[in-house]
Simulated assay, not measured.
Amino acid sequence: MKIRLILPLLLLSIPFAALCQEKPSGKSKDHLSAVAEKALIKVSIMYPYEEGKTFDMEYYQAKHMPMVAEFLGSNLVKYTIEKGLGSGIPNQPLPYMAIGTFYVKSLEEYQAAIGPKRDAIRADFANYTRIAPVILISEIIR
């Protein structure tokens, strides 16, 4: 019985304001702003739909994208693979058969990692498609 009474009394003895205060992080507002301003880089590899062309999604997912992801190392935050299903406008052709996206921390590190491996990456295209990709590099704003 005594134990049950002690905990509520102990909690009541702690000032409410102390419970509601945020703990200092040790980081200045300027530091936090600088971190927030540093955005991720998004590399989108888009494969436009072309009549009569094919795309081997299984190979792309199991072999190609993991190979490129390995080249990127610790700079890679994540990658995604999308399979095109339709156009945003009814009865219009599919704009892209597939889109692969890499999210990286540094554009410079991405370019340094991909540059020496470019020929190997391009040579692997033939294993899953004959479509020339459109590549867009962008900065994530939000």
Rank of each mutant, 00 (worst) to 15 (best):
Pro93Phe: 00
Thr101Tyr: 08
Tyr128Pro: 00
Ala120Gly: 02
Leu136Cys: 11
Thr54Phe: 02
Asn75Arg: 08
Ser74Trp: 03
Ala113Gln: 11
Ile114Ser: 10
Met65Arg: 05
Phe55Asp: 01
Ala17Cys: 03
Leu94Gly: 07
Leu94Thr: 05
Phe55Val: 02
Ala18Trp: 07
Gly88Phe: 04
Lys78Glu: 10
Phe71Asn: 07
Leu9Arg: 04
Arg130Trp: 12
Val43Trp: 01
Ala34Cys: 08
Pro15Gly: 01
Ile99Arg: 08
Tyr59Asn: 10
Thr54Tyr: 03
Ser25Tyr: 02
His31Ala: 13
Pro66Trp: 10
Leu136Ala: 15
Gly88Asp: 06
Leu76Cys: 06
Asn91Ile: 04
Ser44Val: 05
Arg118Gln: 14
His64Thr: 00
Thr80Gly: 14
Lys83Tyr: 03
Thr54Lys: 13
Tyr79His: 10
Ser74Met: 02
Leu94Gln: 07
Glu82Asn: 13
Ile137Val: 15
Asp119Gly: 03
Leu19Arg: 11
Glu58Phe: 08
Ala18Lys: 02
Ile137Ala: 11
Thr129Gly: 00
Arg118Glu: 15
Tyr49Asp: 10
Val35Ile: 15
Tyr110Asp: 13
Lys29Ser: 14
Leu136Glu: 15
Met46Gly: 03
Ile3Cys: 09
Lys105Glu: 15
Gly86Pro: 00
Leu85Glu: 15
Lys42Asn: 14
Cys20Asp: 08
Leu94Lys: 10
Ile89Tyr: 09
Lys53Asn: 12
Tyr47Met: 03
Ala34Ile: 10
Ser13Gly: 08
Pro8Gly: 04
Lys29Trp: 12
Glu50Leu: 09
Ala36Met: 11
Glu108Tyr: 11
Leu76Thr: 00
Ala36Val: 12
Phe102Tyr: 15
Gln21Ser: 11
Ala98Leu: 01
Phe16His: 05
Asp30Glu: 14
Ala98Met: 01
Tyr59Met: 04
Pro24Phe: 01
Met46His: 01
Ser74Gly: 01
Leu7Cys: 09
Glu109Met: 12
Ser138Gln: 12
Glu50Ala: 13
Pro90Trp: 00
Leu94Met: 12
Ser138Glu: 15
Leu136Phe: 12
Asn127Val: 04
Asn127Ser: 07
Ile45Gly: 00
Ala62Pro: 04
Lys117Leu: 11
Ala126Gln: 11
Lys117Met: 15
Ile114Cys: 13
Glu51Trp: 01
Glu58Leu: 06
Phe125Gly: 01
Phe55Lys: 04
Ile135Met: 12
Lys2Ala: 09
Val77Gly: 02
Ile99Met: 11
Ile137Cys: 06
Lys2Glu: 08
Phe125Ser: 03
Tyr47Lys: 02
Pro8Arg: 05
Val104Glu: 05
Ile6Cys: 01
Ala17Gly: 10
Arg142Pro: 02
Glu82His: 11
Pro66Val: 07
Tyr79Gly: 02
Ile141Ala: 10
Arg4Asp: 12
Lys2Asn: 07
Pro133Glu: 02
Tyr49Cys: 07
Met97His: 05
Val35Thr: 15
Ser87Leu: 01
Pro48Met: 03
Pro95Asn: 06
Ile14Glu: 04
Tyr110His: 14
Glu51Asn: 09
Gly73Pro: 01
Gln92Cys: 05
Lys2Arg: 10
Val77Tyr: 08
